[in-house]
Design a protein around this nucleic acid. Structure first.
Lengths: 129, 129
DNA sequence: CTAGAACCTGACGCTGACGTCAGGGGCAAG
DNA sequence: CTTGCCCCTGACGTCAGCGTCAGGTTCTAG
């Protein structure tokens, strides 16, 4: 498949795919005309890249870990980095969960306050005029 | 307290605090000399800002939601945005959990493969030479 | 009183993951 | 053949959240 189709299938821009290649995240076979061609499997690879980006990994980190992830080429050092990133993600999850809970509490509290027409005790701020 | 102390207590840089003020996230009382002074409560506010940044909110979004979050000034529109952000965070959590699980699976699999000295069936990639 | 730390206001720099524009080639349909 | 769409390579633009430097003022310890 050519770059436009891959972009459509994977849900990213053509520019992004060229950027990935430029940074060693993705390879392509070039036709004599210079056009890039990709195998079907590239779709999954691009989705994986997106998933790792979404988890806060940089392209430099991803390019180091991808051979380990896709081909199972796991040196001890790579495994170490991998589990390091895993731990980072876990911390991030915990942080997000606590933020979500805080927002949840806020939303239910504010909604109740609005419905019942009073302010929840414990709230900070000046009293209403 | 002055800006340096607040920065230390909240774990951010002085520059960051000035940036927050510049963007309406944080206010200060100015001495006649121009120096900023903050109440104790500013520490919690800065930590909250950091938490929201970590959850992927932009400063523009934060500045809109902060009055609602800190003072309970919740208009229906603000409550709507708030729960919208909450949902976004929840999606982000789900995505991170699936990424973490994928890495977990990878790590245990690769570790076992290394220990036992074989490749896990189902792996993709060329056979070893 | 004085040295040095802390503070001030601009204002430019940086980084990453692309967006976008310019200028030009390739390829199937009518 | 040519129209129109897709593709190519540079190369500059963008945006957020600060870092950093310059040049000057203020506070505090001794």
């Amino acid at each position: 498949m050519r770059i436009g189709e891959l972009a459509g299938e994977a849900g990213v821009s053509v520019r992004a795919l060229r950027y990935y290649e430029e940074h060693g995240l993705l390879t392509s076979v070039r036709a004599s005309s210079g056009q890039r061609h990709y195998p079907r499997g590239a779709i999954g690879r691009v989705r994986l890249i997106q998933q790792l980006y979404a988890a806060g990994l940089s392209s430099r980190t991803i390019v180091e870990l991808l051979p380990c992830i896709e081909d199972g080429e796991a040196t001890p050092a790579l495994l170490d980095r991998l589990s390091h990133e895993r731990d980072r993600i876990e911390e991030q999850i915990d942080s997000l969960v606590s933020t979500r809970d805080r927002l949840d509490h806020l939303i239910t509290t504010a909604t109740r306050a609005k419905d019942v027409g009073h302010r929840c005790p414990g709230w900070v701020g000046p009293p209403p005029p």
